[in-house]
Computed example of a mutant assay.
Amino acid sequence: MNQNYTGMLYVVPTPIGNLLDITHRALEVLKKVNIIAAENIQHTNILLQHFNIKNYLISMNKDNEKKQSDHLIKELKKGKTIALVSNAGTPIINDPGNLLIKKCHNFNIQVIPLPGPCAAITALSASGLMYNRFCYEGFLPSKKTERQNLLYSLRKETRPIIFYETKYRILESMQDIIEQIDKNRYIVIAREITKKWESIYGATAISLLKWLKEEKNRYKGEIVIIIDGYKKLKNDTLNQKILDTFFILRNFCTLKTSVLITSKIHDFNKNNLYQYVIKNKNDKII
């Protein structure tokens, strides 16, 4: 390679399932650097052995990241070259290494990112929900309340939303999506991307949960959830169906409550509805 490796940190993506997805450039870097900083040495060794690469590895995971970052910075200052790799995919995305990169910038050490596999982008490209904009949220919170609060805050997000989830929580998370976002929102689940049992399936949230429950193998492995963005109503005109709902509710609720519930049922602007019923209160019993 016609590159100068003095005092450089390489961010090297590795396959997320299929070992053939690694690039020639990534293999060349892993051969030539002085040190490979791996999230899990044993896991990375499988990759290296497959391609007959022998090199010096050290562990850098979420538990020792601070200590190892300080050590690696010293090595980089000496002119060493280092490759940062995670267990799978592009490093830093939900993986350790960000602290090391920040320190490199602080000490003017060059950081060279290599392109490569990423489960979120790979799944999005095959989802049918590809747009110029999307929202990546990483792993959903493991605690139910935190997960529900996050989902509720994203209910009006117009961009497709990408999450990672585990097989242990996918059914609970799907139920929370139904309750906090919309049972009829279109969702794609991409499972085991690039691996033997890869599957990509899309349906409304309520239908998707039913589909998952029918067969346990449908939610085994590593999972990417892609939620279609919120679609604003094209027609914001007050119609008879909205008014009928309001007048039914008005027989049992206060004006304010009737307006609030009606606006939620029909996803209609509550202020517009309130102004209408006030202006026309003499036409019906308001």
Rank of each mutant, 00 (worst) to 15 (best):
W211A: 07
N18A: 02
K210F: 13
Y219H: 08
I41Y: 08
F247P: 01
T254Q: 11
P160Q: 07
L154Y: 00
I181N: 00
P113E: 06
K143V: 02
I248K: 14
I35N: 05
N271F: 12
E192C: 04
Y5L: 10
I93C: 02
I261D: 08
I41H: 07
E172N: 13
L171K: 11
E192W: 11
F51S: 01
Y136C: 00
A83Q: 03
V85R: 04
F107K: 14
Y219P: 00
E222V: 03
L124V: 04
K264Y: 14
E137R: 13
N280P: 04
I223N: 06
L209V: 06
S153C: 05
I242Q: 10
Y5A: 01
M130D: 14
E172A: 07
A123M: 10
M1K: 12
K264G: 00
P113K: 03
W211K: 10
F51Y: 11
Y56Q: 15
E192S: 00
H50K: 14
R169Q: 07
N239C: 06
S199W: 11
F252C: 07
L48F: 03
A123Y: 13
I242H: 08
N269F: 03
D176Q: 06
K32F: 11
L47I: 06
L114I: 01
I261G: 04
K66Q: 14
Q42H: 13
P141L: 06
D228N: 11
A190L: 09
Y56G: 02
K66T: 08
I242Y: 11
P141G: 06
I181W: 02
T245K: 14
K78I: 08
N272M: 11
F247E: 11
P141V: 08
I286W: 15
A190C: 13
A37W: 07
L72V: 02
L48W: 03
D63N: 14
K183D: 09
N280V: 08
K54Y: 12
L100V: 02
P113A: 00
P117W: 09
D267I: 08
F252Y: 15
R159N: 07
K78N: 12
L114T: 00
L233P: 05
L212C: 05
K264T: 07
H24Y: 15
E39L: 08
K284P: 05
D95H: 11
F268M: 01
T257S: 11
K67C: 06
L57V: 04
R155M: 01
M8H: 12
E198I: 01
Y10M: 00
K234F: 10
I285V: 15
F107D: 15
S173K: 09
N108G: 06
L9E: 02
L212M: 09
F139G: 04
Y274V: 04
E215H: 15
P113T: 04
Y56F: 14
I93F: 13
T23L: 05
S125C: 09
N87L: 05
D95R: 10
E165F: 07
K78H: 13
N94H: 13
P15R: 07
K80D: 08
A190V: 06
A203F: 12
E192T: 07
E172T: 08
E65I: 02
W197P: 02
I162H: 10
I242N: 03
Y274D: 05
L72F: 06
K62E: 13
P160F: 05
I22N: 02
N34D: 15
I170G: 02
D283C: 13
